[in-house]
Write a protein that binds this DNA or RNA. Structure first.
Length: 623
RNA sequence: CAGGGUGUAGCUCAGCUUGGUAGAGCGUCUGGUUUGGGUCCAGAAGGCCGCAGGUUCAAAUCCUGUCACCCUGACCA
């Protein structure tokens, strides 16, 4: 049991002006955190207690799933990152520290390199695998823009686990451990009392194997999630597939021109919305073109030369970079404007015509943009797109007339296949129709015919990932297998943002008076509010009750501050303790104390007889 | 990294346009008052006006530079 007057809970009436999101405001006001620098925070006693509770749950479930805890250093020699090239991949996000010998070190953003190096020296046989090791430790990332309090920090607490396998399938394989981690994460976030979803996530260009994110469902979340109720499919928008869309009845691209091609001067209009407004059309009548540069290896460049990809989607849609990458089969990056303009692309004003007659340019057209006839309206489509020169757009773009019938005809087979695989190196193709945009609410489900996707927002608190051999390959982690062949170890990694989980919980669960902690994460289960601290009787009763509650394994906070009742009630609500017991003369005279749950916002609760209080609190806490 | 904004008391902010030597509310401390949802009254302490240059008789205020923090975007295993 702790006394409020003997610990540090600096509640405030107002939050700092720069705090905007609820978790930031409330964690500050409730005395959980204080800023130290950009994206760096003090974790005060309440926060520390809550974080310890999250950590304890994580530990239990990780151990139960067969993982062992260890602790690796946060400070690492910089050379470690060279083998995996993550000194470059992380770029400025990697904190660099020069030591007295002028040697460069890194503050670890994550520990793949360290643990792979560790394993290289510790295991020498496939018989020692599988292994799953985890730690709970402070991570450092020099984020370009830390924001939203604890949700995006430069220093934060993370549980990171790494598993090692000699095979993918079967007992002891990566897939088995991955599934075990999926189950463990589900247990962890369920026990934390969070409303969450496990969703398919973008697994990046390496390997293309499975990856799931665990998202706390919350309208203020940074990530967009799509779900199909019928099939249970759920995915991050970065990853979400779109089910078969209805093909245009007349065929792709086919439609009569809606008028003669007309150039319009559109200077100083930065966004598609502005251009649409200026040209008096809807964004859905515009074609949005995004230019990507293929990032080839030197060998590829020698063979294929410089390569570009132009993705075309409807103006009200967004290009999905992962889908462009997957369909083209190329590593890509948004084109550098200067470089692209040198190639003849008027960035910001590119139309599909820009691809015509240029070698090494692939045009990827989203299915919704690859039409010329509006079936719903029963007439040809009206398209506005770039004018292929600075500050100009064109009206009445028609695919067949203005892009060219021959190139379209040559690709009819690709369009019919729908999700055509192709691209620059698939032959002579330079136009492919497919799914290259972000999914939206109402889009067809990719897993259940006739069902539609729904959207929600989420905060990513966990991410599990099949790494494959990315790190073991780069760092030479191999063990001999049954046949005495050296084989590269297969890895998985599994992260949980512990400090972010605390903040996400507040985002998910608060009201106008403060935080509502789930019992499992509450810094204290119960707060005893002493009405008159000058009353020896109230003090004695409080102490006795607190002792009884503590004996039941409950965490008890006694508000023994010499404050007016109103102040104490406000603070109790603010810091969000699930159960409040008020010790005042009125209730004591009636032989009890006042019992109120934080989630019951109305009224002041009822009097519970002294002999039944402990059972009542235990009952409330247990569920 | 680009664009925008802000740095004045522990917190929220006013003062700056039009230079004249520092203000309010909340919080803190003292005394009184009050005592079931952030009482009321009186008094007090508390500031290198982010930092460094410059202009001026005089700078929180004008100029230059710099640092820090925040917002939007880019970025984000």
């Amino acid at each position: 049991m702790h006394q409020w007057s003997r610990t540090l809970i600096p509640t405030t009436r107002e939050a700092p002006k720069d705090a905007e999101v609820p978790s930031h405001v409330l964690l500050h006001r409730a005395g959980f955190i204080r800023p130290v620098g950009a994206g760096i925070y003090d974790y005060l006693p309440l926060a520390h207690r809550t974080i310890n509770k999250i950590s304890a749950i994580v530990r239990e479930e990780m151990e139960a799933a067969g993982a062992s805890e260890l602790l690796m250093p946060a400070l690492e020699p910089f050379e470690l990152f060279k083998d995996t090239k993550r000194d470059e991949a992380y770029g400025d996000n990697l904190f660099r520290v020069m030591d007295r010998k002028k040697r460069m070190n890194a503050l670890a953003p994550t520990h793949e390199e360290v643990i792979t190096e560790l394993m290289r020296g510790c295991i020498s046989s496939y018989k020692q695998l599988p292994l799953n090791l985890f730690q709970i430790q402070t991570k450092f990332r020099d984020e370009a823009r830390p924001r939203a309090g604890l949700l995006r920090c430069r220093e934060f607490l993370m549980k990171d686990a790494y598993s090692f396998h000699s095979k993918l399938e079967g007992p002891g394989g990566l897939n088995e451990t991955y599934d075990a981690m999926y189950a463990a994460y589900t247990n962890i976030f369920t026990r934390c009392g969070l409303d969450f979803s496990a969703v398919e996530a973008e697994s990046g260009p390496i390997g293309g194997s499975a990856s799931h994110e665990f998202m706390v469902n919350c309208a203020s979340g940074e990530d967009t999630v799509l779900k199909c109720k019928a099939s249970g499919y759920a995915a991050n928008v970065e990853k979400c597939e779109i089910g078969p869309r209805k093909a245009p009845s007349a065929g792709y691209f086919v439609g009569e021109p809606t008028g003669t091609l007309e150039e319009v001067h559109t200077p100083g209009l930065p966004g598609i919305e502005d251009v649409a407004k200026h040209m008096k059309v809807k964004p859905e009548n515009m074609l949005k073109t995004i230019v990507f540069k293929v990032e080839s290896t030197p060998e590829e460049k020698a063979k294929f030369g410089e390569e570009w990809i132009i993705a075309v989607v409807r103006g009200d849609h967004d290009v999905n970079e992962g889908k462009v990458r997957d369909i083209s089969g190329c590593k890509i990056a948004l084109a550098d404007p200067k470089e692209a303009e040198a190639k003849g692309f008027a960035i910001g004003f590119v139309s599909p015509r820009a691809a015509v007659g240029k070698a090494g340019v692939l045009l990827l057209v989203d299915r919704d943009a690859a039409v010329g006839f509006d079936d719903a309206k029963g007439k040809s489509m009206f398209w506005v797109t770039g004018g292929d020169k600075k500050d100009y757009h064109i009206k009445h773009f028609n695919w067949v007339r203005d892009f060219g019938k021959d190139p379209l005809a040559a690709q009819a087979h690709a369009a019919d296949k729908g999700y055509a695989q192709g691209g620059l190196r698939g032959g002579d193709k330079y136009l492919v129709v497919g799914d290259v945009r972000n999914a939206l609410a109402g889009d067809p489900s990719p897993r259940a015919a006739g069902s539609n996707l729904e959207t929600g927002r989420g905060i990513e608190v966990g991410h599990i990932f099949k790494l494959g051999t990315k790190y073991s390959e780069a760092m030479g982690l191999q063990v001999p297998d049954e046949k005495q062949q050296r084989s590269t170890v297969i890895m998985g990694c599994y992260g949980i943002g512990v400090s972010r989980t605390m903040a996400a919980c507040v985002e998910m669960s608060h009201d106008e008076n403060g935080i509502l902690w789930p019992v499992a994460l509450a810094a204290y289960h119960v707060v005893l509010t002493i009405m008159d601290v000058g009353s020896a009787r109230q003090q004695a009763e409080a102490k006795q009750l607190a002792t009884q509650l503590s004996a039941q394994g409950l965490d008890v906070l006694i508000d023994d501050r010499d404050e007016r009742p109103g102040v104490k009630f406000k603070d109790a609500d603010l810091i969000g303790i699930p159960v409040r017991l008020v010790l005042g003369d009125k209730a004591l005279d009636a032989g009890g104390v006042e019992f109120k749950l934080r989630k019951d916002t109305q009224g002041k609760g009822g009097v519970v007889a002294m002999g039944e209080v402990v059972a009542a609190v235990v009952g409330a806490v247990n569920g």
